[in-house]
């Protein structure tokens, strides 16, 4: 944290020569005296049954457009074959029509992977937004100011996880907020709420005893695309190497 602060200050000083230095990089807002919560999510891949209720609940709770091109969260089905091929599908019925799935002998292993915004510690989307319309809250949740977003879509290009889309009506960037309006009231995100197998675990990363802390204690976890140094706060257990 100290090094990051130092680097961002240094960068701020360098860039400050070009414009008014407002002391803000990555949009860390000032204020909030109490130590804020740091929200995160755990996803236990071996528990996901691919029912897609999280996707539907997310679309409903957050008024995400129903068309199959806009998702704040979605589920991928991986089928790793003996010959090394890996078939990936989005199992949303709006994209992949439902069908009777039979056992394929060539498939070595198959599983579902829920995806959503990783609420990165180093969010590339926040870094590139020209107007500072996307920023991380003190809780570490990356939000979009839809009153200021100019719809340049640079953040969509910068997100390694495909977690952002351009809202077709607002014409501004849109993304998962961890259900900010719920979690700030002590509720669970809608996807976590409806998950029938508790494959998703949500909580405060700094809490000493919580389902999320237990999840992180009991499982070997991994994050997506760690080499990009985005430091995601969505932790997967049983993450297969084929998942990207």
């Amino acid at each position: 944290m100290k090094r990051r602060l130092f680097i961002s200050r240094l960068l701020g000083i360098v860039l400050g020569l070009l414009g008014p230095l407002s002391g803000r990089l990555r949009g860390s807002p000032a204020g909030n005296a109490a130590t804020p919560k740091r929200f995160g999510m755990g996803i236990q891949i071996d528990k996901c049954i691919g029912c897609g209720r999280c996707v539907d609940a997310c679309k409903e709770e957050n008024a995400v457009p129903q068309e199959p091109f806009y998702f704040r969260t979605w589920i991928e089905r991986y089928s790793v074959k003996a010959d090394g091929d890996t078939i990936v599908q989005n199992i949303d019925e709006r994209i992949t029509p439902p069908r009777e799935v039979e056992v394929d002998r060539d498939v070595l292993r198959s599983f579902f992977v829920p995806k959503l915004c990783n609420q990165c510690e180093n969010p590339p989307c926040v870094q590139v937004c020209p107007v500072g319309a996307t920023f991380a809250t003190p809780e570490g949740i990356v939000l979009v100011d839809d009153k200021r977003c100019i719809g340049c879509r640079y953040c969509i290009q910068a997100c390694p996880y495909g977690a952002r889309y351009l809202h077709p009506v607002k014409k501004t960037a849109d993304k998962c907020t961890f259900c900010y309006h719920r979690v700030t009231k002590g509720m669970l995100p809608a996807c976590v709420e409806v998950c029938p197998t508790q494959a998703r675990v949500f909580g405060d990363l700094s809490s000493t005893a919580s389902p999320l802390t237990r999840f992180r204690r009991m499982n070997k976890t991994a994050v997506l695309k760690p080499h990009l140094n985005t430091e995601p706060r969505v932790y997967y257990s049983d993450l297969d190497g084929e998942v990207r």
Binding site: L11, G19, S22, V128, G132, Y154
Partner: peptide, 26 residues
């Protein structure tokens, strides 16, 4: 190409100094 071209002035009002694109105007 902007989704909201009428807001392009924001790039001068609250430029994000870490964004390459924000440097465009300057």
């Amino acid at each position: 190409h902007l989704g909201r071209p009428e807001r392009s002035y924001e790039i001068f009002l609250t430029p994000n100094l870490s964004s390459a694109m924000a440097m465009f105007g300057f």
